[in-house]
Design a binder for these strands. Sequence first.
DNA 1: GTACGTGCAAACGTTTTGCAGCGGG
DNA 2: CCCGCTGCAAAACGTTTGCACGTAC
Lengths: 140, 140
Amino acid sequence: MKGMSSNSLRDLLREAGLRPTRQRLALARLLLSGEPRHVTADELLAEARAHGVAVAQTTVYNILHQFHQAGLIREVLVESGRSWFDTKTTPHMHLYHEDTGRVRDLDQNPLALELLERLDLPEDLEVMGVDVVLRVRSKI
Amino acid sequence: MKGMSSNSLRDLLREAGLRPTRQRLALARLLLSGEPRHVTADELLAEARAHGVAVAQTTVYNILHQFHQAGLIREVLVESGRSWFDTKTTPHMHLYHEDTGRVRDLDQNPLALELLERLDLPEDLEVMGVDVVLRVRSKI
DNA sequence: GTACGTGCAAACGTTTTGCAGCGGG
DNA sequence: CCCGCTGCAAAACGTTTGCACGTAC
């Protein structure tokens, strides 16, 4: 999505059923027009304001959840009391660095998919997603 | 751990490096002396008070985290803003029912272990744990 | 014009802080 | 008996909610 134009961001939002408001466009540009990234709500708020975007904290939360529901980003739960959001939406796992509190992608998609295929689930359940988090620490 | 006596609970806490205080003993009895279970802090607080145990909310949080750090219970992160605690500590995965908000165990240990073995991790990282959550919904 | 979004303030669940006093030794 | 640590109230933290006002269409 690198170097995505204003117009294609507009279309992206519209296709997701979201009105391309000033705030949504600004956050979409920060989140979705570059390399995949992991952010918290507060980091994104600070970044938006540093770029001169006038936006309320609540709105950042609202928009992050709207993007999540629309499938534009993923939510990653690794700490109680704080959510990470991941702009990479294809199936993959996460590495959580307990020392730094940072989240990284772990690109071994086939494993998580195989895991899912080999599970014996009750017939009446639909799988909405598989979240795999490896908690790691530096050995040194 | 079913039907565990007061004395063995005392020993369990002592071996975990925790003083067997009145509150810790009461919560340990509720959590660790029966079948494996999943609770939130507030559920446990309500249950303790229903059993006539005088304990503060903060103390329940403190003790749950102390039990977690001591390896007596596991923390399960499936929703932002609320932690579940699982009294089953052997390796296993979790099923998160998005309809009901409930957590259940999924006993397919070998899969999660195999997953771990087959990952290519940087040499300098130590794996502290693997969390696998399947988000499911009722098909009906 | 109107349906939908935003942003404020207040509520929520959880975590942290500071400290009085209990209890293990 | 005493010191370390526990357990508490209160505040802080990240997030969610309810509602009045704005804005895209």
